[in-house]
């Protein structure tokens, strides 16, 4: 019987070796290891054996079964792997084809500049204040120390609606409106972004509509040196650590002393180039200590309170930051323009 088992083993092993696919293996398994298979048959005849032979034959039968079984499993595994490889090969794609774009919109560069500046100032304890775009003469001019017939009104050409109503020429009226709400109590710390309007013919550097951000700080003991400090902080955060600032005396009716703020030129690092007209500096905003008349009209006592105010052109900031050469681009809404700011 041992010989018979060995014979069956060799036969089965040969068939496994010859098997070409999983089906063949299944057949071999059923044929040799199944309940009706020859090994089982041999085992059934074990009862006739002597007590000595029985364990030997039993052991041999188990060895044969195990050997065939493990060989079948090994081959099954090989066939499965080959099948998987085949399948994966068929599923292969061209990974260099373009992906399906995730549609992403964009923030308008003006909005982007406004929000960035707002966030820098919010970080320094400012709030954001807003006001109407149609203003009264009082808020737009008179409360800002620009009485009727003041020569400085020449600096701004105004869209009037009636003799008293106008499209605001600056965001500064929000200063007075905010001060009034505070009823003479400091501190006031605001930035006011918004659209403003002036009678300019639209060209590469002029627009009848543009955006400003105005800022105002009013409290006891506010100094011009604080204006410098706040700006140094702002400029470094917005334009980069390596930017320097300088103030130049200037004139605005609503501040005194007044200043223009320059930042060192990013293009040449202050050495002088075309962008900065060889000066090494770029003018970015106007500022100054709030004029006592403006404080008074806003309901603050200029003997007790002082403050500083500043105003900057959003388009100018965007143009400097992104290298945009024509202000009209901001208002034509060309997809090829807007799409460039999806990464902002």
């Amino acid at each position: 019987m041992l010989d018979r088992l060995q014979e069956l083993h060799d036969e089965a092993m040969k068939k496994v070796a010859e098997a070409e696919d999983l089906n063949d293996l299944k057949e071999v398994r059923v044929a040799y290891l199944g309940k009706k298979g020859p090994i089982t048959e041999v085992m059934k005849g074990m009862g006739k054996l002597s007590a000595e032979e029985r364990p030997k034959v039993g052991q041999k039968a188990n060895e044969v079964r195990e050997s065939v079984k493990s060989y079948i499993e090994e081959k099954e595994k090989a066939f499965e792997e080959a099948a998987m490889l085949e399948k994966l090969k068929k599923e292969s794609i061209d990974v260099t084809l373009p992906g399906r774009p995730v549609s992403k919109g964009s923030r308008h560069p003006l909005t982007s500049v406004v929000e960035t500046i707002e966030d820098v100032f919010i970080g320094m304890g400012f709030n954001v204040a807003e006001g109407p775009e149609v203003e009264t003469d009082y808020y737009n001019f008179e409360s800002l120390n620009l009485p009727k017939h003041h020569p400085a009104r020449d600096m701004q050409d105004t869209f009037f609606i009636t003799s008293d109503l106008l499209l605001r020429t600056q965001t500064s009226p929000v200063q007075t409106r905010t001060m009034e709400k505070h009823e003479g109590q400091g501190p006031v710390k605001i930035v006011c972004p918004g659209k403003v309007y002036r009678r300019d013919e639209d060209d590469a550097t002029h627009s009848h509509q543009f955006m400003q951000i105005e800022g105002l700080v009013v409290d006891e003991g506010i100094r011009m040196s604080d204006l410098k400090g706040i700006f140094a902080t702002f400029v470094k955060q917005y334009f980069g650590e390596e930017r320097d600032i300088r103030l130049r005396p200037s004139f605005f009716p609503f501040t005194e002393p007044s200043a223009e703020l320059d930042i060192s030129c990013a293009m040449c690092g202050g050495k002088g180039c075309r962008t900065c007209k060889q000066t090494g500096w770029i003018e970015v905003l106007g500022a100054g200590m709030v004029h006592p008349n403006v404080l008074k009209m806003g309901g603050f006592d200029p003997d007790q309170y002082s403050g500083f105010a500043f105003g900057m052109g959003v388009e100018r900031f965007a143009m400097l930051k992104y290298g945009i050469d024509d202000i009209r681009h901001f208002y034509t809404n060309d997809k090829r323009f807007l799409n460039q700011f999806t990464r902002v």
Binding site: L110, T111, E133, H208, N333, L338
Partner: peptide
């Protein structure tokens, strides 16, 4: 895409 237009 965000657009900004004239008010007038």
């Amino acid at each position: 895409l965000e657009a900004v237009n004239y008010s007038l």
